Amino acid sequence: MASEAVTSRSDRRLHRARQATLLSLVTGVWVSVLLPAVGLTHEPAPGRVVLGAVGILAFVTAQTVVLYAAVTPWLDSRWRRRAQVSLAGTAVLTVPLVGPVAAGRWPTWAWLGAALIGMAPLLLRLRAALAMATGVLLVAVAVAVWTGGSIARHLAVTGGIGAAVAAVNGLQIWFWGLLVDARQGQAAQVRLAAAEERLRFARDVHDVLGHHLTVIALKAELAARIAPVDPERAGREAAEVQRLAASALTEVRETVHGYRAVDLGEQLAAVAGVLRSCGVRCTVSPPPAELPQSAATELAAVLREASTNVLRHSRADWCRIHIDRDDNGARMTIANDGADDSGPDEHSHGLRGLADRLAAAGGELRVRREDSVFTLEATVPVAS
Rank of each mutant, 00 (worst) to 15 (best):
R253T: 14
V241C: 07
A102C: 07
G148R: 02
E298V: 06
L264C: 00
L155P: 04
I321M: 14
L299V: 05
L303K: 08
S3Y: 10
A261N: 05
L130Y: 06
T21F: 02
D317C: 14
V215D: 15
G55V: 07
A167I: 06
R357T: 08
A133I: 11
L126N: 11
I334P: 03
W318K: 04
V380Y: 00
A167F: 08
R320D: 15
A202T: 10
N309P: 10
A361P: 08
V380H: 00
L311W: 07
E4T: 13
W74T: 13
L23F: 08
L122E: 01
D326L: 00
V50L: 09
T21A: 06
E197N: 08
I161S: 11
A289T: 06
V280S: 01
V26I: 10
R191D: 14
R243M: 13
A144P: 09
Q63C: 06
A246I: 05
S314G: 00
R127N: 11
L209A: 10
R18G: 06
S294G: 07
A316K: 04
S372T: 12
Y68D: 12
T90F: 06
G159A: 12
G273S: 12
R352K: 15
L67T: 09
H15W: 12
L51D: 08
L171A: 15
I334L: 11
W30K: 05
A217P: 05
A163F: 03
T61P: 07
H211F: 09
V382T: 11
L57M: 11
N309W: 05
A217S: 15
L51C: 10
P287A: 01
A88Y: 12
V208F: 00
V165E: 01
A129Q: 01
G113M: 08
G329A: 02
L354Y: 01
L34W: 04
G170W: 02
A227N: 04
S294E: 10
A217G: 15
A37I: 06
G353Y: 13
A142I: 07
E305T: 14
T333E: 09
D181Q: 10
R200N: 03
A217E: 14
R16K: 09
L116Y: 04
L264H: 05
V95R: 01
V26A: 07
L311P: 00
A144K: 06
V98P: 01
T308Q: 13
G39V: 02
L244V: 02
R12A: 14
V101Q: 03
T94M: 03
L354G: 03
R366K: 12
R198G: 00
A69S: 13
E251Y: 06
I226W: 03
A234C: 07
E4S: 12
E298M: 12
L376V: 08
V60Q: 11
V85Y: 06
T255E: 15
P344R: 12
S277V: 06
L275R: 01
W79G: 10
